[in-house]
Amino acid sequence: MPETIVLEQFPFSASRLAADNKNTRKQRIYIMPTRHGLLFGLMLFAMLIGAINYNNSMAYILTFLLGSLSLVTILHTYRNLAGMVINEAPPLPVFSGELAKFPLILDNRNRHIRFAITFIRSSKKKWRLNQTSTNSHITTCNIDQNQLERIEVPVRSLHRGLLKAGRIKVYTIFPLGLFTAWSTIDVKQACLVYPKPEGQKSLPPVDLTESTGIQGKYSGTDDFTGFRNYQAGDSIKNIAWKVYAQQKGLFVKRFIGSGSDKLHLRWNDVSHLPDIESRLSQLCCWLIEAESQSLQYGLNIPEVSLDTGHGEKHLHLCLASLAKYGLKI
């Protein structure tokens, strides 16, 4: 069970969340004025000076109104984030070089909509106001009252293996953009990164000694089994021309073929490639190819030996062992 992160709720609101789960972790929320908030403050100061100089009551009123508006905005910005429950979900594996997406489940248990909650992967540099470095991807969403929202924080994967998202900053500047309330969450989930599929697509020769063909029957070409009405797209080779010649319409002969081949991908098959990474990439490419051709395939690399199989899950197992190859995980 992954941890549940609760963004700090105001002290005197009944904490319904604490009792929910022992696995919860509280995170503090910080509030800072944004750059525009500082600009706003500067403008307010100018207004105040003007009001004092002209001893103008309405100018005083407007200045104080806007000043207290920013105070109230602090509360609203805080509320927009406070008490939000964040659950991590396991990210789906990606191939190296792709964007790994770390899903977060945002649970809004309040009666108000949470607007414009933004997630960004914190950079290691010092925290800056409104940082938006070009590398990081921003994810923003609204969460309706009493609803869940699923968002994905994208992180570029560079190497195979396990990719950690690290710290993700969640912030909001709603409603007026004068203040930002923010918190950082430490994402514990790691994303499995497969090697990048590279290399030639043609599969190595099938190991004929093990080809038995009893595993299942596919539509093939061996045994005749009956007729069927012609449908557009059927192979012309299979049309029952004899029946057609009797003017009884177009029929297609049907056959059943046997045999799927067992393909064992071995470390030897890629030994001609210079380094480990390109070997893994080649194997990865072949595995995907084998799966798309509905072959029965297995994997034999040092320390890992997987029996032949087929299907999404099997492919995942094979790719995962490639991804973890040689890494101490």
């Binding site: 489940i105 869940l148 929202e149 699923r150």
Partner: peptide, 9 residues
């Protein structure tokens, strides 16, 4: 239904 669709589970 909504939960099953939105949840990451």
């Amino acid at each position: 239904l909504e939960y099953s669709r939105r949840s990451a589970d």
